[in-house]
Design a protein around this nucleic acid. Sequence first.
DNA 1: TTTCATGTGTGACAGGCATCACCTATAGAC
DNA 2: GTCTATAGGTGATGCCTGTCACACATGAAA
Lengths: 210, 210
Amino acid sequence: MEEHNTLRQLFPGLEEELYNEIDQHGEVRQVPAGITLLRKGQTIRSTMLILEGIVKLYQEDEEGDEFFMYYIEPGEACAVSMVCTYRQENSQVLAKAMTDVTVLTIPIQYMDEWLGKYKSWHYFVLRTWRSRYEELLNTINAIAFKNMDERLEFYIKGQVEKLGRHIKLTHQEIATDLNSSREVISRLMKKMEKDGWLIIHRNSFEWIKP
Amino acid sequence: MEEHNTLRQLFPGLEEELYNEIDQHGEVRQVPAGITLLRKGQTIRSTMLILEGIVKLYQEDEEGDEFFMYYIEPGEACAVSMVCTYRQENSQVLAKAMTDVTVLTIPIQYMDEWLGKYKSWHYFVLRTWRSRYEELLNTINAIAFKNMDERLEFYIKGQVEKLGRHIKLTHQEIATDLNSSREVISRLMKKMEKDGWLIIHRNSFEWIKP
DNA sequence: TTTCATGTGTGACAGGCATCACCTATAGAC
DNA sequence: GTCTATAGGTGATGCCTGTCACACATGAAA
């Protein structure tokens, strides 16, 4: 089966039985780019493993403003959805498909069971939380200590790393992610273009700085 | 033994053998208020469980500016120091004793062993990472969406919750924690005093807002 | 081609906050 | 009591960035 190979490649080192359980109980879901996978306050009913595509995680405030925090990639999981508990929990974050995404959803009731049965799953969950924690540290570092120009550069570099130098984002979208405003982003990008860091097109731009 | 009771009370639900191991391998350390328990870049050699007192966790940037993130209290552990790995890791954060603190330090080599042997330890580590992740979300929420006045209020309320309404901090110390400047904090607090939220003394103040 | 929606460029302006300068208040040391 | 170190108060100033206003560019639809 195609799925089997991919699963084993993307999530190596799990027990054979666990792979079987995942095959058995997991459900593959295709999600088009732009769709919200998990919204704030939503009850978490399943864990998501990313098979394909890139998911963006946001913090959201009461007014509905979004603040981009980090990416989740194939081979990773949404830590927030890995609550290892019987009681229902609500999501504190917002997850959106950045590209077309394939996720494997596993009903939440298996979490406790698997944590008890499979050591590899335990380690995987732990690694996941830990690496998300580190992503948040980076995010805090950026907003606490950096100005908009540095944050924008950091943000663009992140995009480049995920999807290459040709970035299909409008200034408005970037501004939303950084909780800034379009005009500010436009001005900063214009300056970056003058400095030879990037080339602006309509609806997209290319990062040419090494 | 005094220690035994405290340990079992503060960290309930662990296996009997694990308590014994902790007793055997853990070392109780007294740390006076203000001392740095873990500095950024430092190699992590032991896990810390907090028995008494309150520890503050900071993010630190290249220039040495500190940014307060959250507290660790008795019954909790420093997630950052719970790296479950043979290879040496360096701390990305800064931990300081806010009050006089009693910590139980456990050499890092037991981490892998205990994760394998004790299910309760595994759950404890997982809970720890998870709750620290949530603390960081709150922190991000504050800096991404709030102005200084709201952040200051949020900060003071946090202090009040930990140590009561009478807070022994200078404006300078608060400014450092919030990565702001003394003058700004002074001005905002003066306004809060006018509004009847607090009373300013020298070296301290009282929060009287309900 | 014309029209229209959407993306982008840019000046003007305002508010938040950092910084500088300098002052006053307070507590402890002498 | 006087001196001194440290905490706190306050105006002036400037930068960063958010906001408003409006012009211009571009591509799709008509």
